[in-house]
Design a protein around this nucleic acid. Structure first.
Lengths: 145, 145
DNA sequence: TGCTTTGTTGCAAGTTTTCGCAATAAGCAA
DNA sequence: TTGCTTATTGCGAAAACTTGCAACAAAGCA
């Protein structure tokens, strides 16, 4: 378990939300499954332990935990959504359109971009989670450009 | 009509694809409806003229035209997909989450970013059309942050 | 501990998006 | 123009995702 259950629980309760077994199971599942977890994968994982937990709840809880900044929403190349643990430091992805691989981008890169937009356009870009699409080194080579 | 129908038709036929009435209607619809057009909006628009044209075809054609670089896919704030004409001149948007206003971003900004990603991460970012979300000057002020 | 409040869940029905496959028709060549 | 090839469509069904609502149960308090 890489997430601090008690800390997150406390955070939720403090905001007037409840810590339910469903929410804990779903959080554990995302945590275990890694970096770009689809709702369906979460459902499969969780359903083994709690067969009555519904798909609707999975979707609702994923949304909810994202709003609470406990999870982060990730755009996949095909437009679908996936989730991952948010962590204290926002991070970003370079998503390969060919092989769907993810490359992590340090927050500092985006902070610089954000500052630039702010000063030049007076626009506050939300850089809590950003994904860029393109082609990784491997796929670029094999494409034989 | 801001798109060059004959040129696009020629491009498609040259690649071995066919120019169907459905494809033309859908292209026209996206073109008329402007920036960030949802599949449903396209369907509504097109359905008035061609009631038998199915939703499946709308989705398929939008996807297809995106692959052909005739349309560009844009991620909306809520994770949903929208489309817009790709055009020869790449353009980018700063989208305000509060008032939905669009601010155009010069391509040069993104080109610099692209070069940085290429040299630092050996990743070729697709910067043909990018949207960033956040808050414009007006909404930032009125929010009283 | 037991009661109360009200945030959450599960179900089922409702959207949105995709898929398989037979029928159709675009483009090409004669 | 006619016919052939096969890309593309439409349909219906399935998958993916959302929503309304009644029942349930987490937190807080007596």
């Amino acid at each position: 378990m890489t997430h601090n259950t008690t800390e997150i629980s406390r955070q939720l309760r403090k905001s007037g939300y409840r810590v339910t077994p469903q929410r804990q199971l779903i959080l554990d599942a995302v945590c275990q499954l890694g970096d770009h977890v689809t709702p369906e994968a979460v459902y499969d994982q969780v359903h083994r332990i709690a067969p009555t937990l519904s798909r609707a709840t999975v979707y609702r809880v994923l949304h909810f935990l994202t709003e609470q900044n406990i999870l982060a929403m990730v755009h996949m190349a095909d437009g679908r959504l996936a989730y991952e643990m948010a962590g204290p430091e926002p991070h970003h992805h370079l998503v390969c359109r060919s092989c769907d691989s993810l490359l992590e981008l340090p927050h500092s890169v985006l902070l610089a971009f954000r500052r630039a937009m702010d000063s030049q356009y007076d626009f506050e870009v939300d850089v809590s989670h950003v994904s860029f699409f393109g082609h990784c080194a491997d796929c670029r080579d094999s494409a034989g450009a």
